[in-house]
Design a protein around this nucleic acid. Structure first.
Lengths: 190, 190
DNA sequence: AAAATGACCAAATGAACAAAATAGTCATTA
DNA sequence: TAATGACTATTTTGTTCATTTGGTCATTTT
């Protein structure tokens, strides 16, 4: 069987995006890395952006799979949702591609990258939304808007992990977990 | 009595910063607006940045005063802290100077402006910290780290007001209030 | 004498232009 | 028929240089 050129291109692009970022990756470079002519790329993809889109689509698939593994049917809802969130953010922290893309979004703001990050974030929120809706249906938590709830939880986690550390000593996993439990599940009121 | 030249300069600078931003304001412009020679400015201030610092210091004083007015001794803690937060963010939304400065921070990232915004944010957190510590002392809420709690509350509010609206219909005050109560005070668990 | 001033300067900025690089096309090739 | 890389229109980058700017200080005004 002949080599799967499309796959070669996707892998080359992913490697280059991870190493140099989206903007700094040239199509010539991708062609060379994939050992194909540049024209070949355009028989599989409409544009550079479409390559990124396809890569991110499979990235989202991987993230969801990882998040699924984090769920333990024997644990309570609040335990599970915290584990899912941690998985998502650790995925993001441990994969070179996501690190580079988030960095490029903040520092350069390349349009295609901003769009794609938005998709990743929405995918996380949609995933959590499902879990939250289930918990409501099962009567484990109070009625609430699942989308807003997922949004607020994600924003809070991101703030605690990325922004708090800008001016304070970082929080360890244990502390994070306790804070989350206190703020979102038990509430501050005595 | 002679005109207070220092005050004239501060007012001229504040007006210009509000209208054009910090970077786009020139010292010649401030001098002209204040009807003083440029050299005079430097008998009162060491640098352009020092003018901004002094303006923001008094801005923080005003914000704290406004926040203080929002506190009603007859209301419960959670009602009060929500009102204080709303006051802070409305202050920020309704004063031309803060609008311009936050915009310049995001869009240009002028160093002096980034520093000054950080000071404003820390001032809000410190103020809330005090209120939270009081509530803990009075036994109204559970033990918690007041600084982290203030930080998370501010981040959440900002996310709901500024980020949520990017891709969703805005939340009205009533909804915001209910969400805040649910997430932070009562908790999601049944 | 003290306070105020604006001409002046070194450094920063940005407009304008040239050169290089790049995404995407298409006639040719294998 | 699938693959290719030379080619092109458009962006991006690098460079130059006139203008602008924050800040100083010798001079003027009070």
């Amino acid at each position: 069987m002949a080599i799967d050129r499309k796959q070669l291109i996707l892998e080359a692009a992913k490697k280059s995006f991870s190493l140099f970022g989206y903007k700094a990756t040239t199509m010539d470079q991708v062609a060379k890395l994939a050992n194909v002519g540049k024209g070949t790329i355009y028989t599989f993809f409409k544009s550079k952006e479409e390559i990124l889109d396809e890569i991110v689509t499979s990235l989202i698939r991987d993230m969801k799979a990882e998040a699924g593994n984090a769920i333990d049917p024997n644990s309570r809802f609040d335990e599970n949702i915290r584990r899912v969130l941690i998985r998502f953010l650790e995925f993001r922290k441990s994969h070179q591609l996501t690190i580079k893309l988030f960095q490029e979004e903040r520092e350069i703001g390349t349009k295609a990258v901003v769009d794609v990050i938005q998709r990743v974030e929405q995918a996380i929120i949609d995933y959590m939304k499902g879990i939250i809706q289930d918990a409501i249906d099962r009567g484990e938590i109070k009625e609430c808007n699942p989308e807003i709830t997922a949004f607020v939880m994600l924003e809070t986690y991101v703030a605690l992990i990325f922004d708090w550390e800008q001016h304070h000593p970082p929080l360890d996993k244990e502390e994070m977990s306790d804070l989350f439990k206190l703020y979102f599940f038990e509430g501050l009121l005595k």
